[in-house]
Amino acid sequence: MIMIIEVVKIIVLPLIALIIGIFLMGLARMITARIHWRYGPPITQPLIDMVKFFDQRGISHGFIFDFGIILSLAGSIVLVLFIPFCKIAPLSNSGGLLVILYLMLITPLGIALSSGASGNPNASIGISRKFMLALGYEVPFILIILTIMKSYNSLSLIDIVNVQQAGTWSIISSLPLFLTGVAYFLILPAILGVRPFDMTTAPQEISSGPKVEYSGKYLALLSIEHALTLYIGLTLFVNLFLGGSANFILFFIKILIVFIIGLFINAVFPRFRIEQALKYLWGIPTLLALAGLILTMII
């Protein structure tokens, strides 16, 4: 019986993540439009796009072009199972935060393989930017994860959530954690790959970068993967800093608030160039996170 419940959780969790992700994508397009003084598309627009993409007949550049995109989406789906959603995380006890750090690699690597195999220089430039950006945001991100691990002295995300549930949210529990929380919020758009950090998929410069040769079902899988990435980045923030929640509604509201605050930044900023992004990411967020880690080590 317990087995069946576990299996059901494993099946349902990616679905919930997908629904939340697609909802957030639609919401993003709508709110951005309102900020721009436009009417904007209906909230179901990402879903309509996805239906269309699945019906189109795409092109393929060979086996690895297909395999890479499958691998990247599979990586995202597995990652969803590792991050607690309302304290449900079927696989979170099989390696903790260190495994999450490494599983986060599969998605970009899959896309990199796939779009590299397309043989389009625009895709290659996009991928090289993506990896540079990843190197940029991983430095503060690792610092943040280490600070959390150190201050809760645990590798397990579910333990961290439980401790926060018993006490206060970690972002207001102590000064170092507050600093790292701010740092995480500052790099969140880079992790999600949205403006001002969308130089990876800049349509005007490099013809939307890695996805230049994608069409049809490839784009559909890519937008599913984007939805899951949104979900993962936000839930990780909510679990690490805002205490997660056992209650579905509360959890969702937390995600929503973080996302909408992020959107306000996203909607009004132009795009960074990659070296500006690196300078930014290795500047204030890294310093804040470093200060957090050092303070945690001292205290």
Binding site: S60, V78, L221
Partner: peptide, 24 residues
């Protein structure tokens, strides 16, 4: 867990991928 997770995810995505229209 990781092995079966990734295996199942790849299988799932492959089913979706190959059941959609075949690509050129």
């Amino acid at each position: 867990n990781i092995f079966f997770g990734i295996l199942a995810a790849i299988a799932l995505v492959s089913i979706i991928f190959y059941s959609a229209k075949r690509s050129w």
